[in-house]
């Protein structure tokens, strides 16, 4: 479940209020969380880092409530995800944001220079739930169960998010299957 080093750091932070132990946890997981949040925010680095910082602070305050039934980083991601959703809801309704994503997906022009960049853009056009599911399951190495727990959704919903996301990504990246494109890239 948890890396033994994580478990030790969590125990120190929890039992002694040891900030240095917690700093160790932050250093170990900052890249994971910031990457996840950058994906969610459509590569808005500033917002993602603000959310990541807030998530780490919340996790510190609520460390007693971590029960260890999932990996710590999944629990942390759950906090980050809820903070992200809260921010989206405060600025604009989530449904509106998802509709906007769908509109943008239809109208999105195909723009190289690279497959990785196109993948980033295609991911940015997914809905929040789909983006979170794809990022956790494919890029963060979480199991489906862990990702579902982190996002606070049923396993079936997570799988639906993944299927839809992959379908959208497949459509967005379809032009890369043309020989000309691949030659340019190669």
């Amino acid at each position: 479940m948890n890396d033994p080093a994580d478990a030790e750091l969590i125990a120190s932070a929890l039992q002694r209020g040891d900030e240095r132990a917690y700093a160790g946890l932050v250093a170990r997981h900052q890249e994971f969380l910031r990457h996840f949040l950058r994906r969610l925010t459509g590569n808005d680095h500033g917002t993602a880092d603000d959310l990541a910082q807030e998530a780490f602070v919340r996790a510190w305050q609520k460390l007693e409530t971590y029960r260890g039934d999932s990996a710590w980083r999944s629990w942390l991601c759950g906090i980050g995800y809820r903070l992200f959703l809260g921010r989206v809801r405060r600025r604009e309704p989530l449904d509106g944001a998802e509709e906007l994503s769908a509109d943008r997906e239809e109208a999105a022009p195909y723009s190289p220079p690279g497959l990785a960049l196109d993948l980033e853009q295609a991911i940015a056009l997914l809905s929040s739930g789909e983006r979170a599911a794809i990022t956790l399951c494919y890029q963060s190495g979480c199991s489906h169960g862990e990702a579902a727990t982190a996002l606070g959704i049923p396993l079936g919903t997570l799988k639906t998010h993944l299927l839809r996301a992959k379908e959208k990504l497949r459509r967005s990246l379809a032009p890369w299957n043309h020989g000309e494109r691949l030659k340019v890239e190669g």
Binding site: R16, V26, Q30, E31, R34, R38, V57, Q61
Partner: peptide, 21 residues
């Protein structure tokens, strides 16, 4: 890769005091 670039230090500076259990 996302370099730390002082992120951990900023988080630690923002941590409120916490009672030990």
């Amino acid at each position: 890769a996302i370099p730390d670039d002082g992120f951990t230090a900023r988080v630690c500076a923002a941590l409120p005091p916490r009672k030990a259990s």
